[in-house]
Design a protein around this nucleic acid. Structure first.
Lengths: 179, 179
DNA sequence: CAGGTCATGTAAAGCGTTACATGATTTT
DNA sequence: AAAATCATGTAACGCTTTACATGACCTG
């Protein structure tokens, strides 16, 4: 009945949160949900069209001067679809794809120094993410929406743990390189 | 130069770890790397063929009775490719796709009870994962390989944090429902 | 006037899952 | 004899990224 794709759900949510052009959706998404749900222009524009075909959004041309611009709004049917999704307590998508963990898993095929170097690269990557999330904190706490702050807390907890655990593993590997 | 796809790298690693049929690779992978890197039969068999075309693995037919079976082995060139990958300290793939966090992010479009219910579903899912990881621990610790245990420690840390943070958020949401 | 940002879109390719199809062997 | 496990594979479909293409507007 829903027919709503994962991407469609994000877009509907973004529209409900007042982001109303494809461009603006992408900007906001890159700032916020990118850490746990990324999408690209290649999906956004076709999906907006599909959602309009389904009557879940309406777009009207609203050029800024000579620059083309289509402003979208969520419809009542769209709101119902969004609420249905948010209310569905079935298990949702959970996918982790971490090449660093894969390398760690296969690290018996290489030497300890290389593995430590891999861990450091991974930790640096995650520290950068952590920094980005931390800079988001004031904005999320002071905003009128509670959701972004809730999800940010989860993101911060996960990323902090990864950084710390990498450090711990680095320590383990550099310590007992003796036996 | 590499041409090695992400899936190809996993399979090469699995072969190096002594898993030598498509079926056995899938079994082992479902037991271990599934938590941070999943692949399906639909990728394994075609990829084994591609790797053979590239000279990175060799397969020979080794039927058990009348049951067809192809046993693969990693070649010297395959070992080189594997080591190149493991030695490459560039940043690897990191992708998280978490619908629960997405729902949390958009939770201002629904009521608090629904959000708490979502958190509980998510936590239950992660608790199940945690249990599966914990049952893997003795095997990983006592095995001849160190890598699986290292990556398991990371997996346990991440999943534990998710479970705890969900609990904390549930507490936050059920407490200050008063103001 | 150059560089950055706003804004929209498409095409091709790659990646991956799901569902299906088949059949032998082993365990209960 | 049924059920589980071993074992291999394909086809269709869907999702996503990357790269490309275009052009207007704004700021220094």
């Amino acid at each position: 009945m829903t027919g709503l794709t994962p991407t469609g759900r994000v877009i509907l949510g973004m529209l409900a949160y007042g982001r109303n052009t494809g461009y603006e959706i992408k900007q906001y998404l890159d700032k916020t949900t990118r850490h746990f749900w990324a999408i690209s222009y290649g999906q956004i524009y076709p999906e907006l069209k599909r959602l309009e075909d389904q009557g879940l959004v309406v777009g009207r041309s609203d050029p800024a001067g000579a620059r083309a611009r289509t402003v979208f709004e969520i419809t009542d049917a769209g709101r119902v679809a969004l609420e249905n999704w948010l209310g569905d307590t079935g298990e949702g998508i959970w996918e982790l794809r971490c090449e660093a963990m894969l390398k760690l898993f296969f690290s018996d095929e290489t030497d300890t120094e290389t593995t430590v170097a891999q861990l450091r690269t991974f930790r640096t990557q995650q520290e950068r993410k952590l920094e980005a999330l931390r800079q988001l904190e004031p904005w999320a706490r002071e905003g009128s929406h509670r959701g972004p702050y809730l999800s940010l807390q989860l993101g911060l907890a996960i990323t902090t743990t990864i950084v710390n655990q990498c450090q711990e593993l680095e320590r383990q590997l550099t310590e007992d390189g003796s036996d």
